[in-house]
Amino acid sequence: MANSDGQQTEGLWSLKSLPQMDDKEFIRWQDLLEKRTGMNLPVERKVFLQTSLGIRMREIGCPSYQAYFDMVAKGAKAMVEWTVLVDRLTVQETRFYRDEDAFNLVKDYLCTRPPHALTQKSIEAWSVGCSTGEEPYTLAMIIEEALEAEKLKGYYGVTGTDISIPALAKARAAVYPARKLVTLNQERKDKYFNQLTGNEFAVVPRLKERVCFSRVNVLELKDAPMHGMTVIFCQNLLIYFKRWRRKEILNRLAERLVPGGLLVLGQGEIVDWHNPLLERIPSDNTLAFIRHNERDN
């Protein structure tokens, strides 16, 4: 039984089914997402959008797609609600060491690529679209292990960027459920995590202090402060964008690499992109590029 009329009304509302989203409404949401985030939402993902909006609308008791659109598009609380919605639409389930081939390539690059990447003044890595932080912390593990393998004590730092403020807050907290660690061997679990409870693990302080996080919209990369990066890791992000925008994003990232720097992408995320600054690394299992040491190469 409800404690008040308001709670009873809210409970009844949560059980109501939402109307189907018509084509006109879908196009309005498509345009808003494209304009603000660059995200491309094809008609095939209409059900995904409708479901995601519907869940949030039930949570706050919003009766229609039009009313919710107005809520995120204008008004005093628009940006707060927009932040919540973007988090729902963009944050994906991820894990540590998710793409073993790609991370192994990074480690091999650090240890063997001339000029020796580990002997540089500092190693700077950037995880673009870092979500809740698993990727940048994995990069920190890889760099630390590469330094240890070569018996070096160089400085390194990793920056994780994302558009989702809630995701970045989780990344900064650096506390993860056990399921996020399933792709790590026991040695890495013991070395890089402290167990808090039976199901929660915290990144150890020495690794956590090497990683920082910042909110960056990839539509605004020209204003991002990251420059001279040794490694840029950008996986499972480009799939959200139209082909021309993917190329635009990648060209911006190529400019941010130090000469000799490494750009790692997700397999199949781009197939017809070429940049005169970069040379593709021959590999059947990864999609990665090296920036030329000289412009005329």
Rank of each mutant, 00 (worst) to 15 (best):
G6W: 10
W13K: 05
W13V: 06
K16N: 02
L18C: 13
D22R: 02
D22Y: 03
D23K: 09
K24W: 09
E25Y: 01
F26H: 04
W29V: 13
D31R: 11
D31A: 00
L33I: 11
L33A: 13
E34Y: 07
K35A: 15
M39Y: 07
L41S: 09
R45L: 14
R45C: 11
M57S: 03
M57A: 05
E59T: 13
E59V: 14
I60D: 01
I60G: 03
G61S: 10
Q66M: 12
F69Y: 12
D70M: 08
D70A: 11
A78G: 06
T83L: 08
V84A: 12
L85E: 06
T90N: 06
V91C: 13
V91A: 07
E93G: 07
T94Q: 00
D99T: 15
E100K: 12
F103I: 09
K107C: 03
L110Y: 02
R113V: 00
L118S: 11
T119I: 15
K121I: 11
I123A: 02
L139C: 08
A140G: 15
A140L: 12
A146R: 04
E148D: 12
K153H: 12
Y155I: 09
T159V: 13
G160A: 01
D162C: 09
I163P: 06
I163V: 14
S164G: 14
A167W: 15
L168T: 11
R172Q: 15
P177R: 13
P177N: 13
A178W: 08
T183C: 03
N185T: 03
Y192T: 10
N194C: 03
G198R: 10
N199A: 06
F201Q: 09
R206A: 15
L207N: 03
K208S: 08
E209R: 10
R210M: 12
V211G: 05
C212P: 03
R215P: 12
V218Y: 04
P225H: 04
G228N: 11
T230A: 03
N236R: 03
L238E: 07
K247D: 11
N251Q: 08
L253C: 05
V258H: 09
G260A: 13
G260N: 13
G261M: 00
L265A: 06
E269F: 08
N275D: 09
P276N: 02
L278G: 05
L278N: 02
P282K: 12
P282W: 12
D284E: 13
N285L: 07
L287I: 04
A288E: 00
R291D: 08
N293W: 14
E294K: 15
